[in-house]
């Protein structure tokens, strides 16, 4: 549709209306169908996560913690069988949409609860890593030449980044998670604090080139405070590659959480995440395959959507890749 409007504008003898930077990226992004569909899919999933939070915690339509031992390992779509179970523990409409697990808990309710928790882990972890990354990278890029004692800030920060890159990430996460008391916040923080290095390197490289640009020099000549130059003028111009790596980072964080759950170090019960539903379900893969396949494929689809979305974003904002696309 956008190309049509552009053409009609060309037919008139006037300049086309200025297309904003965001709009231009959006047009390029829409061209790649897989990325667009992933975007829509992810949007739907965020809605689902919010609804899940509402309906499992505040207005309890689906109770993820109700244990019905007489109704364990019911296949998906099997109906509720009122025996000795009190009526308030019955699932909505009397149907187990996705079956029940080894304790007779409703898998659909647990998946709904897990959607919110898993996505939160992904986003908070990436939020932490992006914040730290922008801070460290910005410091190295902007104040890189300042000397502390005999080292420059740049040497110091690239040194820290190199040190972090030397330690195998999953080992570090394991070591810290195994030693700390298990909690959802520790996992977010640990994943976040072990994955900020690539963001920092991106921001540093961008800042080094932006620092010499005319608009930054102009801003400086007007004696605009430095924090304003950094956050209002420079960060928005350096944010594009960070956005891409953040999108891919959410995918990695969700996968890391499921790996930790597999080793028994993830989010502890009774809290449900996709990872620990999958890790608990694998024991019953022959008796109750849905306990493995439902969370497994959910993780696959969501992580895949994040990856495809991130890749579309990368192509939309990177002019070098765009040349090949056209």
């Amino acid at each position: 549709m956008e190309t049509q409007t552009l053409q009609t504008n060309e037919n008139h003898d006037e300049l086309p209306p200025p297309v904003g930077l965001f709009e231009e990226h959006w047009i390029l992004f829409k061209r790649k169908k897989s990325a667009l569909y992933s975007f829509v899919f992810l949007g739907a999933f965020f809605l689902l996560a919010l609804l899940g939070k509402v309906f499992t915690e505040w207005v309890v339509l689906f109770d993820p913690e109700a244990v019905r031992l007489s109704q364990k390992f019911k296949a998906p779509f099997s109906s509720f069988d009122p025996g000795i179970i009190p009526d308030e523990d019955a699932p909505l409409f009397g149907i187990y949409l996705l079956g029940t697990d080894e304790l007779g808990r409703d898998v659909f309710a647990r998946m709904l609860e897990g959607t919110f928790v898993s996505l939160t882990i992904g986003f908070v972890a990436v939020g932490i890593s992006v914040t730290v990354g922008i801070f460290m990278g910005g410091l190295a890029g902007f104040y890189g030449r300042v000397k502390i004692w005999f080292l420059t800030v740049d040497t110091l920060i690239t040194g820290i980044i190199n040190i972090m890159l030397c330690i195998p990430t999953f080992f570090l996460i394991l070591a810290v998670v195994a030693l700390l008391p298990p909690s959802i916040y520790n996992i977010m923080i640990v994943i976040g604090l072990t994955s900020w290095m690539s963001t920092a390197l991106f921001v540093r490289a961008e800042f080094l080139s932006i620092r010499e640009q005319d608009y930054v020099i102009a801003a400086r000549s007007q004696s605009i405070p430095e924090w304003r130059i950094i956050f209002i003028h420079m960060v928005p111009n350096a944010i594009a590659p960070v956005l891409v790596s953040a999108t891919l980072g959410v995918a990695t964080a969700i996968l890391t959480e499921s790996s930790l759950s597999y080793l028994g170090l993830g989010v502890q019960p009774p809290d449900a995440t996709w990872g620990n539903i999958l890790a608990d379900g694998k024991t019953f893969i022959f008796d109750a395959p849905w306990l493995t396949f439902i969370p497994g494929f959910t993780i696959l689809f969501v992580v895949l959507a994040f990856n495809l979305f991130g890749e579309g974003l990368r192509e939309a904002i990177n002019p070098k890749l765009r040349k090949h696309v056209n």
Partner: peptide, 8 residues
């Protein structure tokens, strides 16, 4: 393949 949990 990079989106699927390895153990799954």
């Amino acid at each position: 393949l990079i989106s699927i949990p390895g153990f799954f």
